[in-house]
């Protein structure tokens, strides 16, 4: 089976910034892939190269076996996309905006109605785009991306800046698409929940490189036994050094907020030791939770930073 998207050894720099620094990526039919990484990781640069908007400095990109060179017309028809933060013509209504984009694909009113149904914007048909809320605007962008029934859908941060409800609205539209169509999706995000909820494959990206890629299970399996304790203390907070030196386990200590995290390989045996340590130093726990490792923890373990930094 030919992959829907093939990215081979792609590089792209802006002056001295290596935005994409040698990335390989393969997406098969119907597969949902997340590019997960913090701001500046190179996600937008990568998807825009796949979208044909930017040109790689070197490397190869093929969509359904075709390179962009000379195949613009075919590929523009096969792809649906939403850019990070597009805005529309202020005083055009939702209906008119969709009609305009539909006309580019020789589609008519029928399809515009379907799209408004899919992205749930029917009540807003006659509203000017400038008056839409953030969530509605993102749904309009998604509607435009879906208008030509794309085989390949590329969404750049479709839910950034949205409140949890608006985010869930977008997720349910995409999940619906996942179960009822053969569309392949590449989506960029810095929300690990989004990658987890929607995507089969997750590629963790930082500084233009893929740090790790695979399914959720593959990513977390290597140390699946490991659990995380995240705790915070009542002030006065002990100093970073005293916590680090005296605690029986390595602690990542955030002195400003009085919060720490510890990675435990054997929760049952090690948790009591930790509590003994707290007790013996006369520290007061404000909060403590025990959970399995998340993608954010994984990212932090690899880079020392957090995804949403």
């Amino acid at each position: 089976m030919t992959p829907v998207i093939e990215v081979k050894n792609v590089y792209k720099s802006f002056h001295s910034v290596k935005a994409v620094n040698g990335i390989d990526m393969t997406v098969y039919k119907g597969q949902f892939t997340a590019l997960l990484g913090p701001n500046g990781a190179g996600k937008t640069t990568l998807v825009e190269m796949i979208e044909g908007i930017q040109k790689p400095d070197s490397g190869e990109i093929r969509i359904m076996g075709l390179s962009w060179e000379g195949n613009e017309n075919v590929l523009h028809r096969a792809i649906g996309l939403s850019l990070q933060e597009t805005r529309f013509i202020d005083r055009l209504t939702v209906w008119e905006t969709l009609r305009l984009f539909a006309s580019f694909f020789d589609l008519g009113k029928q399809r515009v109605w379907e799209i408004m149904e899919i992205v749930n914007l029917k009540e807003k048909a006659d509203a000017y785009t400038v008056h839409l809320s953030g969530g509605q605007r993102q749904r309009l962008a998604l509607g435009i991306a879906l208008i030509n029934r794309p085989k390949v859908l590329l969404l750049d941060e479709p839910t950034t800046g949205l409140d949890p409800n608006a985010r869930r609205d977008i997720w349910s539209i995409l999940l619906d698409l996942k179960y009822h169509s053969n569309t392949s999706l590449v989506l960029t995000t810095h929300y690990m929940e989004e990658a987890e909820q929607l995507c089969d494959t997750i590629m963790i990206i930082d500084k233009g490189l893929v740090l790790k890629a695979g399914t959720m299970d593959q990513l977390l399996s290597e140390d699946s036994s490991e659990k995380i304790i995240a705790f915070s203390l009542e002030p006065p907070h002990p100093s970073r050094e005293s916590i680090k030196n005296e605690c029986p386990f390595p602690v990542r200590w955030d002195g400003k907020n009085g919060q720490g995290t510890i990675l435990l390989s054997n929760l049952e045996g090690q948790l009591p030791q930790f509590l003994d340590f707290i007790n013996s130093r006369d520290l007061k726990l404000k909060n403590m939770e025990c959970r399995r490792k998340t993608l954010d923890d994984l990212f932090t373990a690899m880079t020392g930073r957090r995804l949403d930094e």
Binding site: I53, E85, T86, R87, I144, N148
Partner: peptide, 11 residues
């Protein structure tokens, strides 16, 4: 507004 960019990514 990146709208031009969006529009030329269509036919």
């Amino acid at each position: 507004k990146k709208l031009l960019r969006r529009m030329v990514a269509t036919p």
